[in-house]
Design a protein around this nucleic acid. Sequence first.
DNA 1: CAAACAAATTGACACTGTGTCAATATTATC
DNA 2: GATAATATTGACACAGTGTCAATTTGTTTG
Lengths: 209, 209
Amino acid sequence: MTMKSDKFKVDKRHLRTVRTREKLLVAARHVFLENDFQTTTISQIIKRAGVGYGTAYVHFEGKDELLIVLMEDVMDRFHQVAEQPFEPGTAEEAQKQIEQQAMAFLQLAEQEREMLRVVEQAIGISYVIRTKWKQIRERFIERISCDIRYAQRTGLARPDLNPALVARGWFFANEMYLFEVVREETTASIEEIAKTLTAVYTTGLYEHG
Amino acid sequence: MTMKSDKFKVDKRHLRTVRTREKLLVAARHVFLENDFQTTTISQIIKRAGVGYGTAYVHFEGKDELLIVLMEDVMDRFHQVAEQPFEPGTAEEAQKQIEQQAMAFLQLAEQEREMLRVVEQAIGISYVIRTKWKQIRERFIERISCDIRYAQRTGLARPDLNPALVARGWFFANEMYLFEVVREETTASIEEIAKTLTAVYTTGLYEHG
DNA sequence: CAAACAAATTGACACTGTGTCAATATTATC
DNA sequence: GATAATATTGACACAGTGTCAATTTGTTTG
C-alpha cells in the first residue's frame, strides 16, 4: 500500500535519526534539571544519551537549541494563558478576570518550576533563549494592551493612559514574581500575590473617596 | 615629620600596586563598554592595561570583581535615589513624590546607560553580580515598603494590602523599565513612563465613581 | 652599598569546554 | 553484492580560565 510505503515507510535510517534525537533530548532534560544551564556541558549530555560527541551537533546547534526544544511545552502553556478571553461587563468583573489570569500565570510558575529555573538562567546567558522569552513576553503584552483598549472603549478603564505602557508595567510585575515563585524565594502564597498585584493594578494603592 | 613618614610615606612599592590596579580598572572599563560582558576577556583587559596576564588575578578575583568595583559609583547613585524622603500630607502629594522618584530612577538609566548595559548582561551570567544587584533591589523594596506603611498609618493608602508585596510589584515594574531604557528599547519618553506607572500604582487603571 | 629580604609582576602551563570535519559505520538502492 | 546516501563518531584546533614557580623591583639591614 502506498499509505504505508509513503508516509509510514519503515525507514530504518530515519527511525535511527529520530531515536538519537530523542535520546539526546531525554538526556538533556535530565542533565539540565539536575544541574543548571551554565554548568551543563555537551559532554555530560552525550554521555548520558550514550552517543558520540559530534552527534549532538548534528541534531542541535548547541546547548541553547537543545533547551529551546525542551522549552516548547512550557511555552505553549504560557501562550494558552495569554489567550484567555477578556470581556468584562463591570469593573468588578474585570478585576476578577485579571486576577484569574495572574493566578494562572503564577500557577504555571509552580507547575513548571524546574524547567523555568533552567530557562531563567539561560535567559541571562543565551541570546537565542532570551529572544525566545521576549516573544512570549511581547505576546502577553500585546494581548494585555488589547484588553486595556477594550476596557477603555467600554468606559471601564481610564482613557488617559497609554495602553501599551500600562500593559508592559503590569506584565513586568507579574513576570518578576513569576521567577520569584520559580526560585521559591517568595514568602506569600501565589493567591495573595495575584490578589495584591491585581488590586493595585485595577484600583490603585491610595484611597479614593 | 611623622605625618609624612607614617601615613604619607613615599612607599614606591605600594604606589606601584595602586597604579597597576588603576590601570587595570581603566582598561577594564574601556573593554567592557566597547564589547559586552560575555565576550570581554582578561587577555583583552591586561593587554590594554599593559600588564602581564597573572597580574589581573593578583588584584581581582576575575572579570566579575573587576566589574563590581566599576559598578560602585552607579550603585551609590541608586542608593541615593532610594533614600529620598517621603512624607506626603495628601494623596496628591504622595503621587507627585512617587512620580519624582520613578523619574529619578529612570533618569539614572539614561545617564548610566553604558555601564548598566554591561551590568544587565553580567547579572545574567555572574552569581556575584546578581547578588550585588539584588542588594540594590532589596534596599529599594525595603524603603518603598516603609513608605507604604507610612501612607497606611496616615490613612492615605489602603490598609488591606501587604506593603511588602505591593512594594515588590511596584519596584519590579520600574526595574524592568529601567533596563528597557538602558537597552534603548522603549518608544515612550521616561516622563511618560514614570507618569503612567505612577498613575496606575497610586490610583489604579479602572474608573472609580 | 651590597647582601638579604619582601613584595609585586609575569607568562608558561594545565585544564575545561566548544565546534568542526575527515573517517567510519550504517542503511538504502540498483 | 556493489554502490550510493546518510548518520555517527571522536580526535583536533581553538579560546579562555586560573595557578604558580620564576623573575623583577623595591626595601631594609649590617
